[in-house]
């Protein structure tokens, strides 16, 4: 029941974030949706994820506001209204049709298949000594995944530095600075 309420809240917040005229209010309502997602993780019994989502959410807000502060925020009008709307609804409709067929193959809500996870739950405490099974999985059973995730983070940092970096000035002895 609380889950439905929070999902409704998230849907309302994301609609407001999409449709708001002002970019800053859009970012702030987006962060409201993210905090709702964090609460939903808590209700779905995933406390690790709730904490991670909270921190990442705050970082999103800081980075997005850094991107749009001090810029002249022009109201952008949408052109070619009919064509854009029709193509968008075609995409969304095809996605919903495929999702409907895929949803039949999944297990019912509340009864997950626990083939691999059952083994982890049984042997997690004995093999790794960690009371939190999620930590045991990320740091012991699937530690290569975590390693590659860290590699992705560093690659992203290198990419950001390469994009943001200003080109250095080359010293030319005849003309002085160029």
């Amino acid at each position: 029941m609380e889950l439905h309420l929070i999902l409704l809240f998230m849907i309302c917040a994301s609609v407001a974030a999409v449709e708001s005229k002002d970019l800053i209010s859009g970012v702030i309502t987006l962060s409201a949706a993210g905090l709702g997602l964090s609460l939903a993780f808590l209700i779905l019994k995933a406390p690790n994820l709730a904490i991670t989502q909270l921190v990442v959410e705050i970082l999103y807000v800081i980075i997005l506001i850094r991107a749009i502060i001090n810029k002249d925020l022009v109201l952008i009008k949408d052109g070619r209204w009919l064509f854009n709307t029709i193509s968008t609804f075609l995409f969304i409709g095809s996605f919903l049709i495929f999702a409907f067929f895929a949803l039949k193959e999944l297990p019912n809500f509340g009864q997950p298949i626990m083939k691999v996870a059952g083994e982890y739950l049984k042997s997690g405490l004995g093999q790794t000594g960690s009371a939190n099974i999620v930590t045991a999985i990320t740091l012991n059973f699937r530690s290569l995944d975590t390693l590659v995730e860290t590699a992705i983070l560093f690659t992203a940092i290198i990419g950001v530095l390469a994009i943001i970096r200003k080109v250095g000035k080359i010293y030319d002895p005849e003309k002085g600075k160029r």
Binding site: L44, N48, L49, T52, E149
Partner: peptide, 17 residues
Amino acid sequence: VDPLPQAMVSTSIVIGL
């Protein structure tokens, strides 16, 4: 509850950032 999706999603959140 199933801990495997939780571990994978915590990776996915950070990669999304």
